[in-house]
Design a protein around this nucleic acid. Structure first.
Lengths: 165, 165
DNA sequence: AGGACGTTGTTGCACAGACATCTAACAGCA
DNA sequence: TGCTGTTAGATGTCTGTGCAACAACGTCCT
């Protein structure tokens, strides 16, 4: 532990990490703020509505949805509470499994989503995509794909002790 | 949802954006969790200690520090409250400006930072840097640099109304 | 000087999210 | 059929964060 050697990061590596953090926070905050002022819709809510809109039958199991929007189960419960209170989403029982619930997008929810979508897409484009050179798209995609793959397997490795490659 | 034309994102663009989001959340959560279990130190606290350690005289004005760790002023006030309660940081008056306060890293704080640093660096390496091919470092750095530059100027544009040029 | 205006940091408040815990419902097995 | 264990969601509680309001101080301008 005293000798870092292997773990030591170069100045460039550390700088890249910090830039990535800053970029991510900034992009996310601006996006959220734009959605909030223009449509009174938090980013997390937008993403729930978007996932539901894309899903078959405009519905998704709570558990499934929680995974997609990277929220804890309890977190999703409260978020769906709010969306349901605002009429954007309903809960429906699952026929196959009496424990299960579907979160279902209402027409009002689809409407709000449609209103907000241009803001969302424009935000992603101006805050993020515009900064990418054309050749970089492929590069980034490849890299993120690797991060993603390693992420899933890495979860198990990490839980198992994270030692050897 | 009818004609998005200009704002419309290709499937690839949207996919890249989502992968980026997922990757960032995953990396951050793992890092935080590792720091928490190994050193009982949240990521935000670690970053404050790190910034202070790097600063001249191990001290930084609250405002300055808030900018560096991407926290609101009030958020930083509470965080420093906690760190001070734990003896990792002290507040000291600023001689030049009676409104100002320095957050100052204590020896205990420096100790905790030193303990946690290997975990932090190893986390960044295994969660993030290992996924980058060697050639990609430069690519990413360039891209993030552009994002960063655009971010700063974009802030003014955004604050000014964000609409027409 | 003296007063308008901006800055610095803290506080009241509200809210979003996580963790632990709980209940209801399923699956398997004797 | 009655246990045991597991899974899906909901709730209680706690922490952390941002925003708006505030107090204290500095700056600038006339």
């Amino acid at each position: 532990m005293t000798l870092l050697r292997d773990e030591g990061l170069t100045a460039e590596e550390l700088a890249v990490w910090r830039m990535l953090q800053r970029a991510q926070v900034r992009i996310t905050r601006r996006l959220e703020s734009e959605l909030l002022v223009a449509h009174d819709l938090p980013l997390a809510s937008y993403e729930v509505l978007m996932q539901l809109a894309e899903a078959a039958g405009r519905r998704l199991r709570m558990n499934d949805l929680a995974d997609r929007v990277l929220l804890s189960r309890s977190g999703l419960t409260r978020l769906i509470d709010r969306l349901q209170r605002d009429g954007l989403v309903t809960r429906e029982a699952c026929p196959d499994d009496a424990r299960g619930l579907f979160a279902v997008l209402t027409d009002a929810g689809a409407g709000r989503l449609a209103e907000a979508t241009p803001t969302y897409l424009r935000g992603i484009r101006t805050q993020f995509l515009d900064m990418l050179g054309n050749g970089e798209m492929g590069q980034i995609r490849a890299m993120l794909g690797r991060l993603d793959a390693a992420g899933v397997t890495g979860a198990a490795a990490s839980a198992a002790g994270g030692g050897a490659p």
